[in-house]
Design a protein around this nucleic acid. Structure first.
Lengths: 342, 342
DNA sequence: GTGAAAGCGCTAACAA
DNA sequence: TTGTTAGCGCTTTCAC
């Protein structure tokens, strides 16, 4: 099955009676090689079925033309769009991406980082696992001068860049929109506030309330588990509050959809009795009834920004190394679920 | 930024006053090296911050410990679960995966294949683009004895293995279920039948009808575009049929959900007036009302099967090379949308 | 149980 | 414009 032998630049050189260096240069389209020689080299290379040996190239240049990516979870539409953004930009720049999945575990994340380090990736893009606190596993990269870019779920580390959305602003905008719709008692359904993205959205929510002199009531803050049934429990809890809230800001479209359905099942009309704003702009929001007002979480753009930043850095373009945070624009998408007025 | 220098086995050898070969052997836990030397080597390696150089190793062994993956589209829950299955098995076996996205284009797919070939991946797992007919871009792999595994959307090629579900059977089971629910006029909403997976599901649909002596009516076959609005158009077309069908088998959950909503908006009750069965078991099916009966498309299992097969092949285990098709079990998941009885 | 030496295929500094 | 040469760091025969 294995072909007899791989063709090397030496074979080409011998056939053309030039030196291997000339062949090497010709193949990289080096301007110091004559047009004529180049043409001959390309032709014979093609004819002999030559393919350049990345291994030798990697060894020689000490670079892999590969970017390592660590995601917390592959099964997630947001992550997927991030990946497609990364893949696009990296691919265009000639980089491949090695993707690893930490399955939401800081431990596996560390193992993945270690693995990518061994594989000598040229750079890293990572979306941290929920329970990652200690960034020690990224230290080796920093030490070796390998750029690390954090995305979405970030922690701060010297010498690294972060790509995020302005979660405070998003929380603020979502809440303010509800207030503008006439809501005065707004619940907030979210995940554990230890994670900074949720803490920030919560801050935005609080800011909007404060700015509008709406008192905050501790019972309006509903923390849910990551489980699938969590949305239902949250909705029930909200309906039991006295007086019942007239708006909810939920930090996830799926959970928001489940809430809406639970409200409806219990005779609470959306948006008339309860206005709802979600988060992420997932497909589901366009399908449910009423359609879901949400924050567009621009995964693809974030992935592209991260990859572009990394690639530029690797190619030594611009003063990119000095950027510490890249904030991508995220907008409110208004649909039916929040429109009490017209 | 760059650290002063990489530690090599030569550095370790010098420090311990042994030869590089001994260090190399010790590091691979070669039995011919004495326990004592091994211990010393491991210790010094750790102390000096040694990391083995994959590039040199790759060059020497002519293998990359990397599997190339080509998907037709990253933004897709099915593909994502496939990837998570591949990543899991490959990772456990010490292989990394390089993922490329063909964006549904045969041309980009060919470019990706070419790219992965240049990168000298040890094996390939590919889910073909919808318009791929010509498999020439995989020939180089076959020629070099690099295993190629096709998944889900497959075409036949000598010397390659395919991982699929039994689409005919799935179409049959879905349709038969509708018949058992009392449906006698069953529409089939699907995508272009040029793609064998759709053609096969259609065949299963026809088989079930025939087996139950239900005449087939050409107008019941509704081909939809890939666009998002396609589901709505399909539903409207079905409602216009005379007499109106009493069941639909839709080859996609999202489209099925859109159909259901369109039916409901037009006063057609599901499942009472119209029983619906989807395909893929996407999250959305558990959320809509009524919940959606569907075929569970076991992406993760398929990915795992493909990766396991490939890894075993690469490691020279078993007579795996001889398997040409691996069919993964896919089941009907009965929920509310199809239950006219009970 | 260990060492010497050759070479995987490529690139780049230097020389011509 | 082209050639010479010396490695990149590792593995692996073969010899001791």
């Amino acid at each position: 099955m294995d072909s007899p032998k791989e063709v090397t630049i030496y074979d080409i050189a011998k056939k053309l009676d030039v030196s291997p260096s000339t062949v090497s240069r010709a193949l990289k389209d080096d301007p110091t090689v004559s047009k004529n020689t180049k043409k001959k080299v390309f032709e014979t290379a093609a004819r002999m079925g030559y393919r350049s040996n990345q291994f030798a190239r990697n060894l020689r240049q000490q670079q892999s033309l590969t970017i390592g990516v660590i995601v917390s979870e592959l099964n997630n539409p947001f992550i997927t769009s991030v990946l497609s953004g990364i893949e696009k930009i990296a691919g265009e720049a000639g980089y491949g991406i090695i993707i690893t999945d930490s399955s939401q575990s800081a431990k596996k994340e560390a193992a993945n980082a270690q693995n990518l380090f061994q594989r000598r990736v040229d750079g890293i893009i990572a979306s941290l696992a929920p329970d990652t606190k200690d960034l020690a596993h990224f230290k080796p990269f920093v030490t070796k001068g390998i750029p690390v870019i954090f995305l979405d779920r970030v922690e701060h580390m010297a010498e690294s860049t972060s790509v995020v959305i302005n979660n405070v602003m998003c929380g603020y905008v979502a809440t303010k929109h509800l207030i503008e719709q006439g809501c005065r008692r707004i619940a907030h359904v979210t995940s554990a506030l230890q994670h900074n993205i949720y803490a920030q959205r919560y801050k935005g929510y609080r800011d909007a309330l404060e700015e509008n002199k709406i008192p905050f009531d501790e019972s309006l803050l509903v923390i849910m588990e990551e489980a699938e049934e969590a949305g239902e429990a949250a909705a029930k809890k909200i309906m039991r509050l006295q007086p019942m809230p007239d708006g909810v800001f939920v930090t996830g479209d799926f959970a928001a959809a489940v809430c809406i359905r639970t409200f409806q099942d219990n005779g609470v009309r959306v948006p008339e009795d309860m206005a709802v704003v979600g988060f992420n702009n997932e497909v589901i929001g366009r399908l449910i009834k009423p359609t879901l007002t949400t924050i567009n979480y621009p995964g693809k753009e974030m992935g592209e920004a991260a990859a572009r930043n990394l690639v530029n850095h690797l190619k030594g373009l611009g003063n990119i190394g000095s950027i510490s945070t890249l904030t991508i624009r995220a907008d409110l998408i208004v649909r039916q679920s929040s429109l009490k007025t017209g």
